[in-house]
Design a protein around this nucleic acid. Sequence first.
DNA 1: GTATATTGGATTGCATGTAGGCTTCGCCTG
DNA 2: CAGGCGAAGCCTACATGCAATCCAATATAC
Lengths: 217, 217
Amino acid sequence: MDGTATARVADSVYERLREKIFTGELAPGARLSVPALAESLEVSRSPVRDAVLHLVQDRLAREEPRRGAVVARIGAAELAAIYEVREVLEGLAARLAVENAGRRLVRALHEVLAEHERAVRTADIAATTEADMRFHSLVREASGNAEVIRLLDEVQTQVRLAMRTTTVTAGPRHAIDDHRAILTAIESGDPFAAEQAARAHIFRLRTVLLRQADEGA
Amino acid sequence: MDGTATARVADSVYERLREKIFTGELAPGARLSVPALAESLEVSRSPVRDAVLHLVQDRLAREEPRRGAVVARIGAAELAAIYEVREVLEGLAARLAVENAGRRLVRALHEVLAEHERAVRTADIAATTEADMRFHSLVREASGNAEVIRLLDEVQTQVRLAMRTTTVTAGPRHAIDDHRAILTAIESGDPFAAEQAARAHIFRLRTVLLRQADEGA
DNA sequence: GTATATTGGATTGCATGTAGGCTTCGCCTG
DNA sequence: CAGGCGAAGCCTACATGCAATCCAATATAC
């Protein structure tokens, strides 16, 4: 009946660990010792064990042979592979969004885009990231395909984790231009054009990522 | 050191349950009672619990509010959504396969295709399914992208489960024609053509699925 | 000083106990 | 005979015990 249908301790531990990973309190490579976490979180080992298994399933942690789980470390090569997948999924989401959605979506996207521009002008990094994510989020929600939504959420999770190490900035200007192109395609009602625009956007991000990785190496 | 790096009881239970689900011994909707399974499999409740959680994460089971987990039931609408995703992922895999792979892949695909034709001629359903799956498996392994491989494995798992209920047969002939077209595109070395061919194949399957669902309803 | 053996500490993975809550079945009442 | 009430059973989720194992640090031998 309440919004938090999550009375389970294990779920709460899972969320807390997730947060610690995204804030960097648990950095990539950090060991996830069940007894240690149980003590620090003041719960028993059982729910912690469940939560850690869940993190592993979500690819936020990896099982090291006999040393338990550690927070996942996502390298540039892996991230590039993820972006290849993301490219086609975002393309699909955009195409489906055009087929499904109406004026409501277009208006919402316009608003987010305006917010995005404002954030960039004022050099508000947090708001910029927020608006960027929100744009993609709106499109994929509008796809009406639960699988695409779930998979893109997974992808976003991976990307967020990777950002702890690498940074992919196509340059805020470029991002806005790309988003505007996607919005234009959606407005035109051409599913194929929307797919292409969305794919091009992610393709560009991936290119930037690879270039930065080369320079870094 | 041995092939079965799986000394863990929980993993073995997971595999056994998976098998029971695919063989239909555990039909969609069947309850996965941890104590009951523990007794029937002759292990304690702990590894069974872990295995069931794993099944839920893999979407082979669903958590019902307060009744524990049940084997997932995948309807036609859900399956159609999965096929939309599969379409773009298979397209991506085919494109990457062209970019990566060489003569080795082409030869292997030719062999599988020949096997596929033989199986269809002799009306060997099991062998037909096997060859069909093998073709797709070869292509995605050749993609060299771990994410695509993982996601398509997931998709295949879902499809196998759905087959317990629905059957998607585009007609064995059609499947071979489609596969041949994909192989031709791969041989020609045109990544874009390969992507299109692979997508068209899955798109056709999805269309057939939806038509059958309509007729069934 | 370096390489090796050994011991200690800690962790994983499995087993089992237990409380709270839901479902279901049977019984009683109207 | 129908509907509601109550009790019993089962299950989930959490807590905790325990053996086997692995890693690290230290001591020892050369």
